[in-house]
Lab assay of single mutants.
Amino acid sequence: HNLTITQGKLFFHYNPKLCLSEIHKMEEVSGTKGRQERNDIALKTNGDQASCENELLKFSYIRTSFDKILLRWEPYWPPDFRDLLGFMLFYKEAPYQNVTEFDGQDACGSNSWTVVDIDPPLRSNDPKSQNHPGWLMRGLKPWTQYAIFVKTLVTFSDERRTYGAKSDIIYVQTDATNPSVPLDPISVSNSSSQIILKWKPPSDPNGNITHYLVFWERQAEDSELFELDYCLKGLKLPSRTWSPPFESEDSQKHNQSEYEDSAGECCSCPKTDSQILKELEESSFRKTFEDYLHNVVFVPRKTSSGTGAEDPRPSRKRRSLGDVGNVTVAVPTVAAFPNTSSTSVPTSPEEHRPFEKVVNKESLVISGLRHFTGYRIELQACNQDTPEERCSVAAYVSARTMPEAKADDIVGPVTHEIFENNVVHLMWQEPKEPNGLIVLYEVSYRRYGDEELHLCVSRKHFALERGCRLRGLSPGNYSVRIRATSLAGNGSWTEPTYFYVTDYLDVPSNIA
């Protein structure tokens, strides 16, 4: 807008934040220059609390790290170098490059900038070799853009010569660093050979998330399962459950009422301010606690030095998902009996873990797994792929695949051998790939016309006998059925096997 004052003059007093240069501009645009008398524009009460600059400061050096910015700028000295009290560095987070010096300023003089007072450097006698002032900004957020400017702080001049310097606002972004852990990993099994893994992005990506790394490792069953005799009275049979499938998407929606109208769909109840505040506090606490764990609990591995020492970490090797089922080394339970199943799973520490690289999504279907087997899954978020990966501390989750139908069934015939004193040795093959492992066998036998009897055969007993022995049988026709019990439950009964026990007292003698 054009402003013209045809008559009258300007009068400025007691404006401590208004620089004289701005008042002189007002004289020019209003056409009143030359009308004012000496005392109409006070030299001592206008701009006496402001830094009124008329020179431009330029930054000469900028260096960044993930949490620091090192700045240096060209030296500046007023005509009387004693008038320079120091520099004021202003900075704040700036997602967009549209910041002005006066953003967030209120009537009390406060604003949204963080201000650092910096002492002037030592003055050199040689004007050509003056030290460049600077400042190291610490405690910054990774991968965050900051708006920065600097200006001088000078003393009051009796001659009211307006001098000083100020830089333009520059924008500097800190470097990326390792992201925080992925949030809320959930693993479920939808079949006997697959596990579905879902997660949420890290709360602090500290860069642009480029991919996720998912490692999985087959877990050995508890050692007590191999040692305890679950045929003993009072000892509860062990059981394991597989990871249940995901709930429906509708039930997972946030901010939804727990109660549904019987007449149909209901609208979600909005969260109160107290609920939102509580969630923010919980989120802040979780982030602080995660940072504490990362800094205190997890110790970084030592990389190899120039002395030739090897990095103890196993090298990563990509495998196809079809090879995942046989990740671990199978060892027989008892070496003397080769027909026992290889369900003991000690994992070799030198073995390469299978892994998958996930790009542009937060889910993965891990296939080719062994049925009813526990897996430990390790999830890392990465925001750099080359020249070397920059990934987060791992988040861990466990899951067990679903049982395989008929995996616990005894394959092959049940054979028998009759000894003296009416002892019958029953023999059968253990299931080759049971659900988890076989903890015991149930032997059901009966003599024709009598009630059915049951015998429990422990895992250890089966390994020693290759089956079991029935003792003290009365003469007669017998039928026997056997079924295995694994961590997933009972298998199917075998087809009945028949044998006849004679009275050993009636056996004919070869003595003449």
Score class of each variant (00 low, 15 high):
Asn421Leu: 10
Val327Trp: 03
Leu293Pro: 01
Gln219Thr: 04
Val414Ile: 13
Ser284Leu: 11
Asp385Asn: 10
Val501Asp: 03
Ser274Leu: 06
Phe289Val: 04
Glu378His: 07
Leu379Glu: 00
Ser342Val: 14
Ala399Cys: 04
Glu451Lys: 04
Gly368Gln: 14
His294Val: 04
Thr307Asn: 10
Thr401Pro: 09
Val214Pro: 00
Glu290Thr: 03
His416Val: 11
Gly325Ser: 10
Gln256Trp: 07
Glu281Phe: 06
Lys233Ser: 10
Ser458Pro: 07
Pro314Phe: 15
Thr401Ile: 14
Arg469Pro: 04
Glu442Ser: 06
Asp408Ser: 07
Glu404Gln: 14
Glu433Thr: 08
Asp222Ala: 11
Glu224Gly: 08
Asn477Val: 03
Gly264Pro: 06
Ala381Pro: 00
Thr502Val: 06
Ser257His: 06
Gln384Ile: 10
Ser243Val: 11
Pro475Cys: 08
Glu451Pro: 15
Arg471Ser: 04
Gly467Trp: 02
His461Ala: 10
Asp273Thr: 02
Ser509Tyr: 15
Ser268Cys: 05
Asp204Val: 04
Val334Gln: 12
Ser315Met: 09
Ser304Gly: 04
Glu227Ile: 08
Gly412Ile: 07
Glu356Tyr: 05
Ser486Trp: 01
Asp503Gln: 09
Arg318His: 06
Trp428Tyr: 01
Leu487Trp: 14
Pro270Asp: 03
Gly374Asn: 08
Leu487Val: 07
Gly436Val: 05
Ala394Lys: 04
Glu260Thr: 11
Cys391Ser: 02
Pro300Asp: 12
Ser344Asn: 11
Ala395Pro: 01
Gly322Gln: 07
Trp216Thr: 12
Gly306Trp: 14
Ala394Tyr: 06
His211Glu: 15
Val329Gln: 06
Cys391Thr: 10
Thr373Gln: 08
Pro496Lys: 04
Ser479Ile: 07
Val214Ser: 05
Asp250Asn: 10
Lys271Ile: 05
Val345Ile: 15
Gly322His: 08
Arg481Gly: 06
Arg481Pro: 00
Thr272Ile: 04
Leu505Lys: 09
Pro338Leu: 11
Val334Arg: 10
Gly467Val: 08
Asp291Trp: 02
Glu351Phe: 06
Leu237Trp: 11
Tyr504Thr: 06
Lys432Asp: 10
Val480Cys: 09
Glu249Arg: 04
Asn510Pro: 12
Arg301Met: 01
Pro354Glu: 05
Pro245Leu: 13
Pro270Ile: 05
Ser284Met: 14
Glu350Gly: 07
Thr343Val: 11
Asp450Trp: 09
Leu426Ser: 03
His454Asn: 14
Ser398Tyr: 15
Gly234His: 11
Arg240Gln: 12
Gln429Gly: 09
Thr386Lys: 06
Asn208Arg: 04
Asn490Gly: 15
Val296His: 07
Glu389Gly: 07
